[in-house]
Simulated scan of single mutants.
Amino acid sequence: MTDKTFADRIEALETRLTYQEETIETLNQAVTAQWKQIDTLTRQVAEFGERLRESEAARPGPANEPPPHY
């Protein structure tokens, strides 16, 4: 193998590594943003579930009343 070929291969690998590092960083930022959004949505769903349970508990239940058509 000549020095020129070896140097070309190393340069190609370095270039490739640079692009891979940029891609990894971009993907990491996307995953981090998605996790933040998932966390926010999970908290909202839990809050809505709690509100639903509270409203169902506060709502009066049927008191053995006949249906309206009687």
Rank of each mutant, 00 (worst) to 15 (best):
34 Q>L: 06
12 A>E: 08
60 P>T: 07
29 Q>D: 10
50 E>N: 14
32 T>V: 03
44 Q>M: 07
69 H>K: 07
24 I>H: 10
17 L>G: 03
56 E>K: 06
20 Q>T: 05
20 Q>I: 06
13 L>Q: 13
7 A>C: 10
68 P>H: 00
3 D>M: 04
11 E>N: 15
36 K>E: 13
50 E>Q: 12
23 T>S: 11
49 G>C: 10
67 P>F: 13
26 T>M: 02
10 I>Y: 10
68 P>L: 00
11 E>C: 13
40 T>W: 01
44 Q>F: 04
69 H>W: 14
53 R>C: 03
7 A>K: 15
4 K>S: 11
25 E>R: 08
37 Q>Y: 04
33 A>C: 01
52 L>S: 14
63 A>P: 00
65 E>C: 04
35 W>L: 11
54 E>F: 03
62 P>H: 05
17 L>K: 11
62 P>I: 05
62 P>N: 09
56 E>N: 07
47 E>I: 09
66 P>E: 14
64 N>Q: 12
31 V>M: 07
2 T>I: 05
28 N>P: 00
27 L>C: 00
48 F>R: 15
15 T>E: 09
61 G>C: 08
68 P>C: 00
50 E>P: 02
33 A>K: 06
51 R>T: 08
31 V>P: 01
31 V>Q: 04
58 A>Q: 08
3 D>T: 04
15 T>K: 07
44 Q>R: 13
70 Y>D: 10
20 Q>K: 08
52 L>T: 15
60 P>D: 12
28 N>M: 11
16 R>G: 07
29 Q>M: 12
26 T>C: 01
18 T>Y: 07
32 T>N: 01
65 E>Q: 14
19 Y>L: 15
28 N>R: 14
57 A>V: 04
45 V>L: 11
24 I>P: 02
42 T>S: 04
33 A>P: 00
30 A>Q: 11
4 K>Y: 03
46 A>W: 07
8 D>I: 03
9 R>E: 14
68 P>W: 02
7 A>P: 01
8 D>C: 04
54 E>S: 09
67 P>T: 10
46 A>T: 13
54 E>W: 05
28 N>W: 09
61 G>A: 14
52 L>G: 06
20 Q>G: 02
60 P>E: 15
69 H>E: 14
9 R>Y: 10
68 P>T: 00
58 A>L: 08
35 W>D: 06
9 R>H: 10
19 Y>T: 15
62 P>D: 08
60 P>W: 01
62 P>S: 11
63 A>C: 05
28 N>S: 15
8 D>K: 08
32 T>L: 01
64 N>D: 10
23 T>K: 12
30 A>C: 04
55 S>D: 10
2 T>W: 03
26 T>K: 07
15 T>Y: 08
16 R>H: 08
67 P>E: 12
19 Y>R: 14
43 R>L: 09
5 T>Y: 08
34 Q>M: 05
36 K>N: 12
37 Q>T: 14
41 L>D: 12
2 T>Q: 05
5 T>N: 08
